[in-house]
Design a protein around this nucleic acid. Structure first.
Length: 498
RNA sequence: GCCGCAUUCGUCUAGAGGCCCAGGACACCGCCCUCUCAAGGCGGAGAUCAUCGGUUCGAAUCCGAUAUGCGGUACCA
């Protein structure tokens, strides 16, 4: 099994899709686990739908996930790397042409002059007769004269591959033995359009052969087409690779994952603040498991344990809750400086959007990590959780400041008393373990429930009923700003009353 | 329609003939901790292993049929 070569071959016809990312991941894991080579090839022959923007999104996303490849283009529009290039199919057109000519010369393929209308009519007739749709072979046995006659009518031929008869079998690495009768392939299929551009089933085979791919690892949606590929490998005189068909990722309702029912773009998850460690971890566990009870695994851990033989065969539904849980696990595990790196872009965006007035320094962010990190299901949650620290003009809703069991007057009075205690502490003793006993003592002395007092202060200084632990919050805000906010809250409450 | 693939708690899964009247995780419910929210700890509920039939002393595990789901069936990828 030496010289393992695997590949991911996305089409730049949309943003990086979850399913593509998962297929890329499994290929990557196989390559790294076995010491093989991971190739990236862009299948951009659908010119109308392909774009450089999508190419960029796909390459960026794969880099973000850490799935580095050994051959292929590194950046959108950039040069590619590796001995089997080019790695964009539109730059390989001559090779397909050449391969098609060879098949034509050997009569393994033939020109087909059928018009779309004729094909459509055939299909209708078959449907009416309850037969399986298939190419009827009208052009399969044309004499050179007949071909010339059609060509002179101005008809431009597509090229069809002769599927012949018999049965094609292969040993799928995940599913085991699969056999399909060639009769069920739908007849001779088109490999080159009338306009000369090659079709997917043809280009994959030509390229997988040219790039010496040893193991084709892809989604189950390609399983039924694999016999076509095998026939093509044989006709081209190329060795057949091994095949492995991964179970599909499904929508929550069990149907094939779609943009309509699920969030499928990898970049959307990134924008919410999912970390790549968690994303990769989650994707790896969708359809595969180590066989142990380990769940939180790094890319390196995954590489070490991965084995295609343990991949499941049934499709797996995408479960966002579980992804979020893993994301929390990973956020809790990231080193401080790394977490700060990950958080800063979210804070910059919040500042640009006017949700906070000032961008905190890295040190400021690092300082609050101990109290915020286990409260972040996604990185983006930092703004709701701690944004009050970087807002200049906080205006809490007076009604929200009043605890459930209190009225406005009590709240204003309590805040005034708390303010006095805070002033008593002063900026020099502004420590959590000094503030807490002092404020608890106040509550007890006045017969207030500490929780009520704390909640009033919390909303007064953060504007929200949910925050990191109160005394850490006071310290993070600082003496001056805390007191100013408490004063303002008291003012808001008394004005309201007036 | 035809062909193919699949089927274990709501979800992701463990399980490769006796260790399983089925284990873990997420979600859910309780309790503990607690200034809110989390996190964490402890406990609970939750699967007649799709159904039926067979093989076997013994089946979630092997075989067959059925059902259901999904995929393929393009001059899309």
């Amino acid at each position: 099994m030496a010289d393992i070569r695997v590949r991911i071959a996305p089409s730049p016809t949309g943003p990086l899709h979850l399913g593509t990312a998962r297929t890329a991941l499994f290929n990557f894991l196989v390559a790294r686990h076995l010491g093989g080579t991971f190739v990236l090839r862009l299948e951009d022959t659908d010119v109308a739908r392909s774009s450089i923007g999508y190419e960029q999104d796909i390459l960026d996303g794969l880099h973000w996930l850490g799935l580095e490849w050994d051959e292929g283009p590194d950046v959108a529009g950039g040069a590619d790397r590796g001995p089997f290039g080019p790695y964009r199919q539109m730059q390989r057109l001559e090779r397909y042409r050449e391969a098609a000519d060879r098949l034509l010369a050997e009569d393994a393929a033939y020109p087909c002059y059928c018009s779309p209308d004729e094909l459509e009519a055939d299909r209708r007739a078959q449907e009416a007769a309850h037969e399986a749709p298939r190419y009827v072979g009208r052009c399969a046995r044309l004499t050179p004269e007949e071909r010339a006659a059609r060509a002179s009518e101005g008809r431009r031929p597509a090229i069809r591959f002769r599927v012949g008869q018999g049965t094609v079998g292969f040993e799928d690495l995940i599913r085991g033995e699969v056999r399909i009768d060639v009769a069920n392939l739908g007849g001779d299929f088109v490999i080159v359009r009338a306009d000369g551009t090659p079709l997917y089933h043809f280009t994959v085979v030509v390229d997988d052969a040219a790039m010496r791919i040893s193991d084709v690892i892809r989604g189950e949606d390609h399983l039924s087409n694999t016999p076509k590929h095998i026939l093509l490998f044989r006709a081209l005189g190329e060795p057949e690779p091994r095949f492995a068909h991964l179970p599909l990722i499904l929508n929550a309702d069990g149907t094939k994952m779609s943009k309509r029912k699920s969030q499928t773009a990898v970049d959307d998850y990134r924008a919410e603040g999912f970390v790549p460690e968690a994303f990769v971890n989650y994707l790896a566990l969708l359809g595969w498991s180590t066989g142990t009870e380990e769940e939180v695994l790094s890319l390196a851990d995954l590489v070490e344990r991965f084995d295609l033989a343990q991949v499941n065969r049934g499709g797996a539904r995408f479960d966002r809750e579980r992804l979020e849980w893993l994301n929390g696990q990973w956020i809790r595990r990231l080193p401080d400086d790394v977490l700060v790196d990950r958080l800063m872009p979210f804070l910059e965006r919040a500042r640009d959007a006017g949700r906070i007035d000032r961008l905190p320094s890295r040190d400021e962010v690092e300082a609050i990590l101990p109290v915020v990190r286990e409260r972040l299901p996604v990185l983006g949650a930092i703004v709701d959780l701690a944004g009050f620290l970087w807002v200049d003009d906080l205006r809490p809703d007076p009604a929200a400041i009043v605890p459930r069991r209190w009225d406005q007057a009590t709240t204003a009075e309590a805040l005034g008393a708390a303010r006095a205690v805070m002033a008593g502490q002063g900026p020099v003793s502004w420590e959590a373990d000094e503030l807490e006993p002092a404020l608890r003592a106040l509550a007890e002395a006045r017969g207030w429930k500490a929780g009520d007092l704390f909640m009033a202060i919390r909303v007064a200084i953060t504007g929200r009923p949910v925050s990191p632990p109160l005394f850490d919050t006071l310290v993070a805000l600082g003496y001056e700003r805390t007191v100013a906010r408490v004063d303002r809250a008291i003012r808001l409450l008394t004005e309201e009353a007036a």
